[in-house]
């Protein structure tokens, strides 16, 4: 549940601040596309389909429920997952961080949602 602060919030920041390179037209275009970058994007996941859909749903609800409060969101996700399929779940919500962890197979979800990276995994 480490959250490392980031100075650059892609979703919220103006296009110029985010991307220096490119012309004005490119900037506008990128801004448009960035506005659409607020859907859950699963990067790595080895869960069962059913569980994955549920987990993604949980993450989205939790993050939307606690905007800006990553700790609360992470806690919310962890508790939901614990309830759903047993204990020893771990959740990281943050804008920028590095990690190395050991997870039980079939129990990992690494996804982006907006400007956030979210990792949910199980390790007992």
């Amino acid at each position: 549940m480490a959250t490392l602060g980031s100075t650059n919030n892609l979703a919220g920041g103006p296009p110029d601040a985010a991307a220096g390179a490119g012309g004005a037209s490119a900037d506008a275009k990128e801004g448009d596309s960035r506005r659409n970058f607020n859907y859950p994007l699963v990067k790595i996941c080895d869960m069962v389909d059913e569980l994955r859909l549920e987990a993604v749903d949980m993450v989205v609800t939790a993050v939307e429920k606690h905007p800006g409060n990553y700790e609360a969101a992470a806690k919310n996700i962890k508790e939901a997952m614990d309830k759903r399929c047993g204990s020893s779940w771990h959740v990281i919500v943050g804008e920028g961080f590095g990690f190395q962890m050991t997870y039980e197979q079939k129990n990992l979800l690494f996804m982006y949602f907006g400007a956030l990276g979210i990792i949910v995994w199980k390790a007992s």
């Binding site: 980031s6 919030n9 994007l41 804008e95 920028g96 190395q100 050991t102 997870y103």
Partner: peptide, 24 residues
């Protein structure tokens, strides 16, 4: 013991941006 694996990665705003772009 349940089979485990180690995952190592970094989350940065750049990587998030890239991932979304690729997806798009």
């Amino acid at each position: 013991p349940p089979p485990t694996r180690v995952l190592e990665d970094e989350v940065t705003q750049f990587s998030i941006y890239d991932a979304y772009c690729e997806d798009a």
